[in-house]
Write a protein that binds this DNA or RNA. Structure first.
Lengths: 251, 251
DNA sequence: CTACTCTCTTGACCCACATCAAAGCCGGCG
DNA sequence: CGCCGGCTTTGATGTGGGTCAAGAGAGTAG
């Protein structure tokens, strides 16, 4: 039975076509191959969620956990709240990425997920996915990889927060967003930062002011051009030299 | 078929007896019940590793991933190295805890694991565990919980690193180690910090000096008594008030 | 016993980033 | 149009914790 190379589906996903009417799990997750009929089986349990507007909650902390979510378009952030009311942005999720894996441990979401802009999200019931795994041998391993990747990403963020200064943090995040947009190795590349300076700062453990200042300085130094949320990386090598820790580049 | 309540095995684990000659997975992981024969099946794939001396590596970063490890006695730390040679302590693992889940995503460990003192560790081949899951329905879900817990723990550390000052960080860690030692709600409790001040600081994103100063001040304020690595919490409530973020208390 | 090393503690100083403050920019709406 | 509220930028000032330096213990080897 022929395998479905990921490349194909992924291309379909990054430039959506009519035929790609449903999210395809295989295209969202890590690069392994599934049998064609398995891809279909997996896809059949995926629900297309209603579109999210900016500020809409996908789920709240304390909600019962029943599904993970794949971002089709737009951007979603996850935040965790501490006892004393502080909020920590724990992740940004771009198209093709999976969120909602918090909650697997306790069956309750520990984060809230909020759309940063108009977004489309697919819902993947976790129990059904788990059941399907009994018939599709690779699927469980696949899900483990998914969670393992989340662990890896978080460890890199921990290192970043623990060991880096403001320049390194901001540079790292710019490179991360850029490469997750598929602009991995272009020497000059521009993209949109979908989140506010406040969200950026919160995620990176910095204040709004520091983020803003750092971006301004990067611009003066000719590393980037920044117009509000539109960013152009003009000196990739210099930016890379700043960001010794590569966030999200693991897999 | 009767279920094996976790309580029983766990008690066996925390005060090892002759009959508990092998680590029992069920006793190490999250509180779910397995059928008795399933517990045996799972245990049958577990290898008892050779004892580790202080400073010994359990595995190195870049090693091929083939197993996760359960700490039976002693303490193990995991560290991640950045491109430019900095090292980040990503976790401390006490008896009954599982490490090695980094590497699930890429089949290569991204951390190194090092014994902080003489330690005994069991090796659980991941592939075999995964295979067993086909016969033991709960097992896969169990492993998901395990990884989900790791994700939760890391998110709490991220919040701690991003939002807290030195006092909060140190207080949080003390409470975490204390409760993981089983001294959860005793108003006066003492325990041993198995890691050096340097490791503590590295983990918490602080310098050795700051850790030392903070502990000294806690002592002056009557929150704790500290004699080198021996710690006694003398004012639990005050310490709790400092540490708004509860590390490792999720599950 | 001394000498050496490693870890921990304490003090003095300094700097990166937080905080406080103010002004610019932009979109929405009456 | 002009007003208002949110987001961003920039400047001025303050401070928590990093850095540097010097001892103090404690363990180990000789």
């Amino acid at each position: 039975m022929p395998k479905t190379p990921l490349q194909l589906i992924q291309r379909c996903h990054s430039t959506p076509t009519v035929s790609c009417s449903q999210c395809r799990l295989a295209s969202i997750c890590l690069p392994i191959s599934l049998h064609v009929e398995d891809v279909d089986r997996v896809d059949s349990i995926i629900q297309r969620g209603r579109p999210l507007q900016k500020g809409d909650y996908l789920y709240h902390a304390q909600d019962k956990f029943h599904a993970v979510y794949a971002v089709r378009s737009g951007t979603v952030k996850t935040i965790a709240s501490t006892n004393d009311g502080k909020e920590q942005v724990t992740g940004f999720y771009l198209p093709g990425e999976i969120l909602g894996l918090d909650g697997v441990a306790t069956n309750v979401h520990t984060n809230s997920a909020i759309a940063l802009e108009t977004s489309a999200v697919c819902e993947i019931p976790f129990d059904k996915l788990d059941e399907l795994g009994a018939h599709i041998p690779n699927l469980h391993r696949h899900m483990f990889r998914l969670m393992g990747r989340e662990i890896g990403t978080e460890q890199q963020l921990i290192t970043l927060l623990s060991k880096s200064n403001a320049d390194e943090r901001v540079a790292t995040l710019l490179l991360s967003i850029s490469s997750r947009n598929g602009r991995r190795n272009l020497s000059v590349t521009s993209f949109r930062l979908p989140m506010s300076r406040a969200d950026l700062g919160n995620y990176l453990g910095l204040t709004v002011e520091t983020v803003s200042r750092t971006l301004s300085r990067f611009q003066k130094q000719g590393l980037i051009e920044a117009d509000k949320k539109e960013i152009t990386i003009t000196n990739l090598d210099a930016l890379r030299k700043l960001a010794d820790i590569s966030l999200f580049d693991c897999a």
